[in-house]
């Protein structure tokens, strides 16, 4: 890729992502239009679209940067970019769609994203195993966990797809009582899924911050705040709440916030590498990954959707 082409593509991509993210998080999409008239399942579904879109935006940028770093040496490395971009697009569509029916295109894009994430995980596992030549279990070393294809990264794509797919199922759920998805109580199942996603993402942050030797005390935040959010969600999923889960709600909001604040920290991190932003072509790749922390925000939004469902329907 030539410098200028790459630069233009990267800039356009970033702008698209920011616009998309702005569109899904825009309050007006929910504001006055969202009221008592709408079914709680649809509200939750749209919140999930928003969560899915945010995670997709994060994975689009992150896989773009990381696979560029890997020089797109395998053509399949373009796949997560395409899939994340599509997921972002349909999520933006979903947040504006108040109909209580699944949308076929959204549905298939989400399913495709979930599948891509799984296949990607397989690719990454295989890739690590054969470094630097022959396949061996010994290759799953700290060195390769730190610097080879990140094992957990593709699952973020899968998560975006899964949450989106779940949102479609939620829209479809016709039951007059507590909504169910895949035969499970919808809110609880979503809370459990989100909790698992938070734990996995915190695990990845933990691994990479361990690589960075926790040189800054703030690096402990993503390995403490999100797991607590996950625990609160799990506890909610396991119990039959009678009153609003105020602590869980605020903790999830805090987790949403730290995702964005984390991105800010990472932007500063790139600046404090050698050459700062003037050396952006190296530092964006070798410095802290700017888009990564916003995955926490996406997941926390999904957790809030789950909480909404559960609070609406004690049996959801």
């Amino acid at each position: 890729m030539r410098t200028n082409d790459g630069l233009i593509a990267a800039t356009l991509g970033a702008l698209a992502v920011v616009a998309g993210a702005a569109a899904i998080t825009r309050k007006s999409a929910f504001g006055s239009a969202v009221g008592r008239r709408h079914q709680p399942t649809v509200i939750a579904a749209r919140r999930l679209n928003r969560a899915s879109g945010l995670i997709a935006a994060s994975t689009l940028l992150d896989s773009g940067i990381e696979h560029y770093r890997g020089a797109f040496h395998n053509r399949a490395m373009i796949a997560p970019l395409v899939v994340s971009a599509l997921t972002l697009a349909v999520s933006a569509h979903g947040t504006r769609d108040a109909r209580p029916v699944a949308h076929r295109l959204r549905d298939s894009v989400y399913a495709g994203a979930a599948l891509t994430g799984l296949i990607g995980t397989g690719f990454h596992l295989y890739n690590i195993g054969k470094r630097p030549g022959r396949f061996s279990w010994k290759n799953y070393s700290w060195q390769n966990l730190f610097y080879a294809s990140p094992i957990l990264a593709p699952s973020a794509v899968a998560l975006a797809g899964l949450l989106g797919y779940y949102s479609e199922r939620l829209r479809e759920s016709r039951s007059t009582g507590a909504p169910r998805v895949f035969g499970l109580p919808a809110g609880r199942a979503l809370a459990a899924l989100t909790a698992a996603g938070l734990v996995a993402t915190a695990g990845e942050a933990g691994l990479l911050h361990f690589r960075g030797a926790y040189h800054d005390p703030f690096m402990y935040v993503p390995v403490t705040v999100p797991p607590i959010a996950a625990a609160l969600l799990a506890e909610t999923a396991a119990s039959r709440p009678r009153k609003p889960r105020r602590l869980a709600r605020w903790w999830l909001r805090l987790t949403t916030l730290i995702g964005f604040v984390g991105a800010g920290f990472h932007i500063f991190g790139v600046h404090r590498e050698m050459g700062g932003w003037r050396n952006w072509r190296q530092n964006v790749l070798n410095g802290p990954p700017i888009p990564a922390p916003s995955s926490f925000s996406g997941l926390a939004l999904a957790g809030l959707a789950a909480l909404g469902l559960i609070e609406e329907h004690p049996h959801a």
Binding site: M1, A71, Y147, G275, R278, R281, N286
Partner: peptide, 17 residues
């Protein structure tokens, strides 16, 4: 190569510069 060094360290990988 300063301030900018190199990013791609593995076999057969070339930085654009």
């Amino acid at each position: 190569a300063s301030p900018r060094g190199y990013v791609r360290m593995y076999f057969n990988r070339r930085d654009p510069w």
